[in-house]
Amino acid sequence: MNPGQYIMGLFKEEDSTVNAINELEKSSYQFHRVNSPIPSHKIMDALKLKKSKVGWFTLGGGIFGFLGGFALAIYTAVQWNLIVGGKPVVAIIPFVVVGFEATILFAVFGNIIGMLTQTRLPSFKDLEHYDPRCSGEYFGILASCEPGQTEGLKDLFKKSGGEIRTFSEQS
């Protein structure tokens, strides 16, 4: 994060948080992030976030699983090379079950890998300038400004109905 004064506006309402984000966008203060206890589509829309790329990981996992499931079933059947129940050795219809289950399983693995890599989890380092109330009842907007502009930034948050928390450099 860039040097300067870090200030967090803490809001109890989703709408006032969105309002503060919009005001912040119009200002010269630097926006850093929002911490919130719930996923808020209003906030995501206000921040104009792009669609997540997690789906590509899910798709990749699914394709791998689909091919891998069929490959496993076919490979093992060829090792037997024995006709069972009058079905061909490589019996596609029963193998659809294996292929389907493997598709789901590996798509989920891909999904998990996507979520972990994109959210950068696990991360056991303390997040800088984090207020634990943001996992409970507050939406927190973290912004920074030049040392001489702190009052203006605080006013912006207050006008939107927020409470203020000022972080020292160590917090």
């Binding site: 911490n35 996923p39 995501m44 899910t58 989920v108 056991f124 984090y130």
Partner: peptide, 28 residues
């Protein structure tokens, strides 16, 4: 909790991933 802090970036990917989870669990 793996260091979850509920940042907007985390929620962005989480909500998408959770939706895919639900979509995959349904046919499963």
């Amino acid at each position: 909790s793996l260091g979850w802090t509920g940042t907007h970036e985390q929620w962005r990917h989480y909500t998408r991933g959770y939706l895919f989870f639900a979509a995959l669990a349904t046919p499963l």
